[in-house]
Design a protein around this nucleic acid. Structure first.
Length: 513
RNA sequence: GCUCCGGUAGUGUAGUCCGGCCAAUCAUGUCGGCCUUUCGAGCCGAUGACUCGGGUUCGAAUCCCGGCCGGAGCACCA
């Protein structure tokens, strides 16, 4: 025993290389298992044979939010990796939960995200198709028309008991099925037979079709019998040859339910991949909460900077590339993730840093007239639009000694030498501003802070909408008139901001530092 | 309550399937330094994690059991 331990100790003390060498010397066969070399970033999909067919299937109840972006980006990325098709499918089988505006908002949002789809289908165009498959299922003896009140059925189901409808003949079921469009809401449902003994009561005999007496925003009152999500999704995923289904883990039980349907029809089950919940700090992600806030006037609209919608995020100057990087990093883990704004800002800054040109703006403007300014210091001051890219040219700032500075910069530097970038050094003392010197060396010598300024004689009024939707009014240098809406700039020492509109006012949205 | 699932630094992530090269990767954040006419960026450095307890094993982030914590589902929504 002791000997064995000693030998092991000895072997372990050798480097791996030496151990392998010894193994070789002694003539042992190499038995090391080969570990699969994974592609960096997003993990590979399981069981890929050739091309993949994936789908992004939102419910058109509002615009897309950051949670949708995850599904859309991931699906899109996998289609790009393996080749194949991405299908956009609008799941509008609940007439009550549809926002007619959402159909085009979703297209817009995906386009902004850069997610392209090869085919688009709308489930409300396919209701008759679902009816056909429902009838097939009845004929297979795998579905039954249930007229039990919901709570009674639940009691039975929770005890693994069949209700009386379950044993109806196929003929009786077909008869009821034909009558279904003439019944009223709640009178009957079509149930899929699963396993009443299933450990999870939620899986037992789930509803496939129901009666809805409500005008559908797209197809009106043409149908009264609508499929439930699980039924429509399964039929579609099969018919469209979907190979892999990426969905949130809130669909775990649904995947389980759907498998029964695949088996009843004899269809191949796609690969289900479930990812965890996405939480976003300070943001109400749910569409319904956002809608309520908009209706109540708490939020200004779907693009209110406080919301987690893609249109709000893009308005704030967050780039689609940032979202893509973020989603690729988060991947498809089933564990929940919390996204912090700092994370998004950090990624976004990496992208914006080289794109955004620099401009001066102050948001607590204080007008100053510099006393004793030598004539030689006056004139047009040139400053690079971007310190790292000189070929982008200069902005011109007329400097005549009358400027706006930020109030807080003034307060913090009272009685101290303060340098106006690329201009002169001043001292603000006893409510008076006097010229101190002009060279950078002097500023360095006095450890002066270096701040941005706006020429008072040719300033531009601007607004800056902050992430909490408060609006700061300020002044910017004249060159900002060369900007166009949607340009993202860095307001020096303020932060990155996206120009949203120039008429009637020049309005920026603050992105981050 | 029932069913299922998860837990690696502040946050996100790699590694877990197939135990040893993991005193654990990368990103972001934070702190410090250098540089820079921004409190930005860049460069350099620092910081900081395997949920806990048992078990198996020569060896456990990795396998097994239990606890704790967290999440999802339990609809005639998707």
């Amino acid at each position: 025993m002791k000997l064995a331990a000693e030998i092991v100790e000895e072997v372990n003390s050798l480097t791996l290389e030496k151990q392998n060498l010894e193994i070789e010397k002694k003539g042992f066969q190499e038995t090391i298992k080969e570990k699969k070399a994974e592609e960096k970033g997003l993990i590979d999909l399981p069981h890929v044979e050739g091309e993949v067919v994936l789908r992004f299937a939102p419910n058109p109840s509002g615009p897309l939010h950051i949670g949708h972006a995850r599904a859309a980006i991931l699906n899109h990325e996998y289609v790009k990796r393996y080749g194949g098709n991405l299908i956009l499918r609008l799941e509008d089988t609940d007439p009550r939960r549809i926002d007619p505006e959402a159909y085009h908002m979703i297209d817009e949002d995906l386009t902004w995200l850069g997610v392209e789809w090869q085919k688009k289908i709308i489930q409300s165009n396919r209701i008759a198709l679902y009816h056909q498959y429902a009838e097939k299922l009845i004929k297979l003896g795998q579905a039954y028309m249930c007229t039990c009140p919901g709570d009674e059925f639940r009691k039975l189901k929770d005890n693994s008991q069949a209700c009386s409808c379950r044993d109806l003949s196929i003929a009786d079921n077909l008869k009821r099925w034909k009558e279904m469009p003439f019944m009223s809401e709640g009178e009957a449902v079509l149930r899929v037979k699963t396993d009443l003994q299933h450990k999870n009561p939620a899986i037992r005999d789930w509803v496939a079709m129901r009666i809805v007496d409500f005008e559908h925003p797209r197809i009106g009152t043409k149908f009264k019998v609508y499929p439930m999500m699980n039924f429509a999704v399964t039929v579609d995923d099969h018919l469209l040859n979907i190979t892999h289904v990426l969905r949130g883990k809130d669909h775990l039980a649904n995947s389980e339910k759907q498998k029964y349907l695949y088996h009843h029809f004899g269809w191949t089950v796609p690969e289900f991949i479930h990812y965890g919940r996405l939480k976003m700090e300070d943001v109400a992600l749910s569409t319904s909460q956002a809608r309520k806030g908009i209706d109540d006037g708490v939020y200004t609209g779907w693009d209110d900077p406080r919301l987690g919608t893609l249109r709000a995020i893009s308005k704030r100057g967050i780039k689609k590339e940032t979202l893509k990087e973020l989603m690729l990093e988060i991947g498809v883990k089933i564990a929940d993730t919390t996204i912090t704004w700092k994370k998004i800002y950090g990624l976004n800054r990496n992208i914006l840093e080289e794109k955004a040109n620099r401009y001066f703006a102050v948001f607590h403007p204080q007008k100053l007239t510099i006393k004793g300014l030598p004539e030689s210091s006056k004139g047009i001051i040139k400053r690079l639009k971007h310190p790292d890219f000189p070929d982008r040219g200069y902005r011109m700032l007329p400097f005549n000694g009358i400027v706006y500075l930020d109030q807080t910069d003034l307060e913090r530097n009272e009685n101290k030498v303060l340098r106006l970038m690329d201009a002169v050094n001043i001292i603000f003392k006893d409510e008076k501003t006097v010229f101190h010197s002009s060279s950078l060396e002097q500023a360095r010598k006095y450890k002066a802070h270096i701040v941005q300024w706006v020429p008072a004689t040719s300033s531009q009024d601007v607004e800056l909408v902050m992430p909490d939707n408060t609006i700061l009014k300020g002044l910017a240098e004249p060159s900002i008139t060369e900007l166009n809406p949607n340009d993202v700039v860095q307001l020096e020492r303020v932060g990155f901001a996206r120009l949203d509109e120039i008429q009637p006012k020049k309005r920026f949205y603050f992105a981050h530092k």
